[in-house]
Simulated assay, not measured.
Amino acid sequence: MKEIRAPGSILLLGEYAITTTDGLGLAVAVEPYARAAYTADDAFSVTGIWPEGSTDKTKTWRLVGEHPSTLTIVEAVIELCEAFLAPLTLPRFRFTLDTRSFRGRAGKAGLGSSASGTVALAAAILDAADVPPARIRAAMPQLAVDAHRRAQQGKGSGYDVLTAWYGGIGVFRGGPIPGWSSVSLPWISHTHLVYGDESVSTPGAIDAFVAWTTRHPNEALEFHERSNAVVLRVAKTQDELEPNSEILELFREASLRGTKLGEAIGRPALITPERSIGRCIEEARSSVLKALGAGGELGIVIPADAECSRRLVECGVERVSCSDTGAIGFFHE
């Protein structure tokens, strides 16, 4: 039996901007991982296991069927892989896609489990079909981006897919064919993740953002340009071992801009951590708390200094655990 793993993802900067062509975002691959295990069998099949609330759900797929208009993630991956492999057929393997490690307090941890699962499964199917590693590297991650969008009715920037494929930290560039440039930011290991009560609907938030850009084109252009500038500036802080005053100020600016945009589009970009953790963050003066994504589910704390970071750990605020290895690592040149 073989297994391919793909990490989760968080977007530190660039929310909403990455949904536009050439919009930039700063993304980080994080634990946990989606796992696609596979072994030879009499026929092709995929069994998915994923968390739902406090329980696990399981379903087995064999073929997509008559090209339905709405597909699950697994069905979209099967459809795209089948088209890629044609005229050859899908490999006679039994695949098991397991994303249970993404379980959070509300069922999912909000770390890109569907994108990670898409990448792991697509790569596993191509590998089982004996596609050469060089060709897999060339086809991925766009095949996975297309499959993920196919399952979301064409929506999705693809940042989480590219993060799961490449791993590490990168500057993501939005567009029909998104791009990725890897960067090294040692200070990321001194930042902290916090969890909120519930997530804001990402598709609904994106629709609200698009409507806002149509009504306010000048403000939208200014937002796009400043958001990109902050991403590029933060990406250049590669020599910093810990967050410095410039990094804190850039994240503070991004947090305020995200809050104002959320208010303008009617989707508040707020993160409300547990009361005890919230008090700890408030006591860590000069530290920055920024909502990630559309808000509500995840946030990042940039501590003002090492002492603030230590106190946050004592309060149970976990540090960001960056995964340097994406699924691409299984396909060496």
Rank of each mutant, 00 (worst) to 15 (best):
Y16F: 12
R62T: 15
E15P: 05
D146W: 02
P87T: 10
V234N: 01
E297W: 04
V301G: 01
G25S: 05
V77A: 05
G204N: 10
R215P: 01
M1I: 12
V119K: 03
E314A: 15
G258W: 01
T20E: 15
L90D: 04
A29M: 08
A29S: 12
I247C: 11
A254L: 06
V200H: 09
L121C: 08
L250W: 03
S54V: 15
L312W: 03
G179S: 11
N228C: 06
G104Y: 07
P133F: 06
A235K: 05
T58P: 06
E249K: 10
T72S: 15
S116F: 04
C280V: 09
L126K: 01
D56T: 14
V30S: 02
C308G: 04
E66I: 14
G174P: 02
A254G: 06
P186H: 03
R252K: 13
L11A: 06
V301S: 01
A134V: 14
D22K: 10
L63G: 12
S54T: 11
H224M: 12
E75I: 05
L241A: 14
T89D: 12
R35A: 06
E283L: 14
E79K: 13
L85N: 09
L221S: 13
S9T: 08
V74A: 10
A115L: 07
I125W: 01
G167S: 07
S54M: 12
Q238M: 12
G278N: 08
I4H: 03
D56A: 11
R233I: 11
S227G: 08
